[in-house]
Design a protein around this nucleic acid. Structure first.
Lengths: 190, 190
DNA sequence: CGGGACAAGTGACCTACGTCACATAAATCA
DNA sequence: TGATTTATGTGACGTAGGTCACTTGTCCCG
């Protein structure tokens, strides 16, 4: 499945777009490739785009004053990623995004998204429903962090994304779970 | 400021509606009052509405298998509250909402919201932008839980909502912060 | 007004996790 | 290929926060 088909199938899960409308929508995306290790958004940057992952994997993460990293999201195919706080408020990035497995992404600017929402009703509907889902997911993650222990959350993560086990080093998984890499290591090597 | 003006001012922060459109929008809300302690959504319920708080305070919370409570949100005036996962997916509620200070709320059904989004472009825009903000807030909260200690989070909460200190018992604040009431108590009584 | 529920403080003790230090092992690149 | 990162495991030890038990204070409401 190529980039266009991937996006089209993704959009179709939430709303319907005529072929003409989808072509218009798709024409505003820029197709980009990133290599493992490449930075996409760096804290302090101006943020102008959001990214739709076609293949590979990105991570979005925050680095605190002690240089400790917290991973917000592993962005797998058909996931969106950006620093949304920065994107929506046109403030400098506070989170970073980089590529952890060679990736193909589609990139949409803030202005193009707003323009498309203005012109195509079901594009606005798509983004509304997409963010609704994101909001529910973020709330679920918060509850999971507060409610479940590390081992449970680790196993849930691997259940949902088995491929992470192979492509992502354990220190990054620990940074996603919010524990030290030593603690994660000791879960299965007591 | 009455309920209508409160909602109108709130909507105006994100988009513009003509007076006729706002009247139409407003006419779909039901004005309800709740007394302290009253349940609004209970886990297992069918969820059909979201609630906009005019005055008073609600809490939304999850109760786990060990009967431990985690508070997702203290819904103050101009905040929205519901079990959005249940509302959007038409599944039974997994979180609860009740009233912690006598409250006036406006209630909007799922169907009415979708109908209004269908008919009034800027209502859809409003809900899109509102949830965008909610998503950013949820992500911030997650980062804060992972990154900051309890004392810091407690002080941030009180800085943002000083009135909570007076109207909300400390065990509920502890449930929001994700610690035991004893730990919260010992922060300032070591 | 008096009793029962709720709120809050505190001591004793336990446990999960963090930190630091070191040892390998695997991957990457010049 | 050989050298330098990077990833991972593991021991020793410290600390934040949880749990349980008990006490005291406060607020309703019949």
């Amino acid at each position: 499945m190529d980039a266009k088909e991937t996006l089209q199938a993704h959009v179709a899960k939430l709303t319907t777009l005529t072929d003409e409308n989808f072509d218009d929508f798709f024409s505003h995306f820029q197709h980009l490739s990133f290599k493992k290790g490449q930075a996409i958004i760096t804290a302090g940057d101006k943020v102008n785009c959001e990214y739709f992952v076609i293949s590979g994997c990105l991570k979005s993460f925050y680095v605190n004053d002690d240089l400790k990293m917290f991973i917000l999201q592993f962005a797998m195919p058909t996931w969106w990623a950006s620093d949304y706080k920065a994107l929506y408020s046109e403030s400098p990035a506070t989170i970073n995004i980089d590529c952890i497995a060679d990736a193909q992404v589609l990139c949409l600017t803030n202005e193009d998204r707003e323009q498309l929402c203005e012109n195509i009703k079901n594009v606005e509907r798509f983004f509304r429903l997409r963010t609704n889902k994101g909001y529910v997911a973020a709330q679920n993650r918060l509850l999971s962090v507060m409610n479940n222990n590390v081992k449970y959350r680790y196993e849930e993560l691997l259940k949902q994304y088995p491929e992470l086990y192979n492509i992502v080093p354990k220190n990054l998984i620990a940074a996603y779970l919010g524990v030290s890499r030593e603690t994660l290591s000791r879960l299965y090597n007591p």
